[in-house]
Design a protein around this nucleic acid. Structure first.
Lengths: 109, 109
DNA sequence: TAGACATATCTAAAAATATAGATATGTTTT
DNA sequence: AAAACATATCTATATTTTTAGATATGTCTA
């Protein structure tokens, strides 16, 4: 998918729904600086694929299933990218889409 | 009054809630170019204070009370500014806040 | 291969949002 | 002052979203 497509078909409503929740906004912000906001992982010494679900949950007061649901909705909106590493699923920001979304707001809103 | 408009985390969530609805997003977009999207008003020959509620409603399939509720929620989020002219209430975009919201997303999200 | 572990999905109940009809308020017109 | 008009507010119902417990799935480890 081209960057052009991203900007043109950007679904403002669906992404805004994700951003309508304090915790989901926080998750995106936390993932911007994983090394500052999360402890190191056991198996991997970098955050190239993001952060595991458990660590994200630990920063909140919410249940495992709620956080998993949040991350799923963020993934459906293309805002994050999941990667499986053994038992864990790591989530990282989809910078292209996040940037395209903000650019599309700047232009069209 | 300061030349800066600050958008905090809470504002992002509240503004995003407004943008979680297709019609409300459309209203903001329509108000960007009133002369293109609306007929001229009877009493006033400019759109300096925006567009009256009836004209906005006419562009939708929704009831008067729903549109009024929408505009109220947009006003609560500081996205639009109402001005009374006789029987009519005109709504215009609050460009400062809209820009501050997008800039805040660009910077912090 | 059984158990432990991390995450995802299902389900149901609670909370929030959407929506429009009825009515109230404020303004103008007759 | 009454009627007409534009919009706001109230109220109730329908719909959507939130949330967590229970359970399922996939992976690792003993």
């Amino acid at each position: 998918m081209s960057i052009f497509t991203y900007i043109c078909n950007m679904d403002i409503v669906e992404i805004s729904k994700v951003l309508s929740n304090k915790t989901r906004v926080n998750i995106l912000k936390w993932l911007k600086n994983p090394e500052v906001n999360f402890p190191p992982h056991q198996d991997i010494d970098h955050f190239d694929d993001g952060v595991c679900v458990g660590y994200i949950q630990d920063k909140t007061e919410l249940s495992q299933s709620t956080i998993s649901t949040y991350l799923n909705s963020m993934q459906n909106a293309d805002l994050v990218i999941p990667t499986r590493h053994g038992k864990w699923t790591y989530y990282k920001r989809n910078e292209k889409v996040i940037k395209a979304y903000v650019d599309s707001l700047k232009k069209d809103l």
